[in-house]
Design a protein around this nucleic acid. Structure first.
Lengths: 318, 318
DNA sequence: CTGAAAGCGCTTACAG
DNA sequence: CTGAAAGCGCTTACAG
């Protein structure tokens, strides 16, 4: 950033330039640019001509500054390399486009400091809203921004220490149908592969315990706290995995044995590995869309208390 | 967008508010906020106190408007659902972060109209630069923006009808090593699965012809213009695929036969399907980084003629 | 060391 | 129908 020097360009024409070339006042240019009434066809034509000649294009950033909002939303996730996060982005973007918003985006790589830096940088640019896949830890650095009017929706994981909307998959229900499916197949030693801690794994594990109990099966906490290394030699006939990444790791870990795998979240080629992998499927694009719609509603004045919406899941048995 | 009403919030404090509360002039607040010299410790303390009391945070958008640049880059790709594009984004973002740029992003879904809309919207916001995975068709709508000073780099595909930098994988070389590999294995009927048209498929096909000829094998244009349906019954013992998507389609299409597959671009589980899939691998993250660095250099004043940089590929035989 | 004025490129609120 | 002035929230260029 040190010896950075801007390229010298012909400066962009402004409304002022257009006005003087057309021989009218600034306000008149503004009127024709905005399609406001009260301009004679002849005047409008002169202005349009000047715009054409000069190659004028209105500076949106300047307009937005005066207007008070930015027509911009910020999206923050772990990483776009995770297809789930990328899909959420796509869903959100479709809603943003429908409503005329542009998107700032940034990835945290699961680093809370990066999340805070990014969020605050976007707030400093005065985004109208923020959609965040939260990193672990507190998000109270956001309360003053939220109070200042930045609509905020959390996705895939709920926020900590902040009251705000959240949209996520029905994890509890997903764990239940996964375990019920495996139990119905006759499996009695069922493991869970995920992170030792963190929202997703905790919730999924709780769902496992419920479903195991409901099925009359023993609950073995050791089997519910597997990692890839332990899975390789664990005495399980089936394993439920927290996400795509863990599912793929499981496929490798049990490649030589006969262990049934159910993954949370569908992924490409799940049906073509051997044996095929069943999954609890849900639509991350829908999560993004739902979050976007919720945010738009907040921006439109919806003052209802923070909501938590869960997107449905379903089993794809293979 | 019709009956949209803004939530009424306590208005954000401005520098003016801070100034009056601290009993100093606006400029003095600006000085302490920017860490400029020439403020007595006592004055600074008073200002800092007022900032704290009011919860003041500088409006970057306003600062940037005055400054003349936006410290913002725009990234436009087909879709984040394509892991290749998502990876390019990650590489670009890392460079942007290093240099203090925020990113606007948007996807085109391969629709030229959406690309133009997005690009122009970002230019209207006055981004300093644009990184684009171009849709097919002309990009001459960008020349006036480029002339106006918007640094532009194309990635994964070269632009049409515009002189600008481009960063892409060494497709020609990739096709050559893929075919050479297959030929060395004894394959004589080698097909190519890709789009009928489009930059990537055209270039790869040209590389195939070169390599086929070099290996003394016959060039059969029919086999070089396969689609998924034709592949299923084509008389080939091996097929080279244009991208992840086509590679996965090929895996399905030849599941029951013995056809060797080489894919352009690595992907998860490529080693675990049966038979394992060899790939021509390259690093899309590096493509994003390279594009970002190139752009930064342009922004720093580099006036050299447009460059085309190709990122190396290598064969991963499985 | 401190500040009053002008300006970035637009829109808003008024006046004629 | 048209325009001159003030203002969005900052920084720049000067003056004291």
């Amino acid at each position: 950033m040190s010896n950075q020097m801007q390229v010298v360009n012909a400066p962009r024409p402004t409304m002022k330039d257009v006005a003087s070339r057309a021989g009218v006042a600034l306000k008149t240019v503004s009127r024709v640019v905005n399609g406001e009434p009260g301009v004679t066809p002849e005047t409008a034509k002169r202005v349009l001509g000047a715009i054409e000649d000069l190659g004028f294009r209105r500076n949106e950033s300047a307009r937005l500054l005066r207007t008070g909002h930015t027509a911009t939303l910020g999206f923050i996730a772990d990483t776009w390399s995770d297809p789930e996060h990328a899909a959420v982005y796509q869903g959100l973007e479709s809603i943003a486009r429908e409503h005329g918003y542009l998107l700032y985006s940034g990835s945290t790589d699961s680093d809370p400091d990066r999340e805070e830096l990014l969020s605050l940088a976007m707030c400093a640019r005065r985004v109208d809203g923020l959609i965040i896949v939260p990193t672990p830890g507190s998000h109270d650095y956001l309360v003053s921004e939220i109070e200042a009017g930045v609509a905020t929706v959390f996705v895939l994981r709920p926020p900590e220490l902040v009251r705000a909307d959240a949209v996520l998959p029905d994890e509890r229900g997903g764990a239940r149908i996964a375990i019920a499916h495996l139990a119905a197949l006759g499996h009695r030693e069922i493991g869970f592969l995920g992170e030792p801690d963190g929202h997703r794994s905790r919730t999924l594990r709780a769902g496992c315990v419920e479903a195991l109990t409901a099925a009359g099966l023993p609950v073995d906490q050791t089997l519910l706290h597997l990692d890839t290394a332990r899975l390789a030699s664990a005495e399980v006939s089936a394993v439920f995995c927290a996400d795509q990444e863990h599912t793929r790791a499981a496929i490798r870990a049990v490649a030589s044995r006969r262990v049934a795998i159910v993954g949370f979240g569908d992924f490409p080629l799940a049906d073509l590995v051997s044996p095929p992998v069943s999954v609890v499927s849900y639509d991350p694009v829908l999560i993004g869309r739902t979050a976007g719609e919720l945010l738009i509603r907040r921006l439109a004045g919806d003052q209802a208390p923070p909501r938590r919406v869960e997107v449905p899941v379903r089993l794809i048995a293979r």
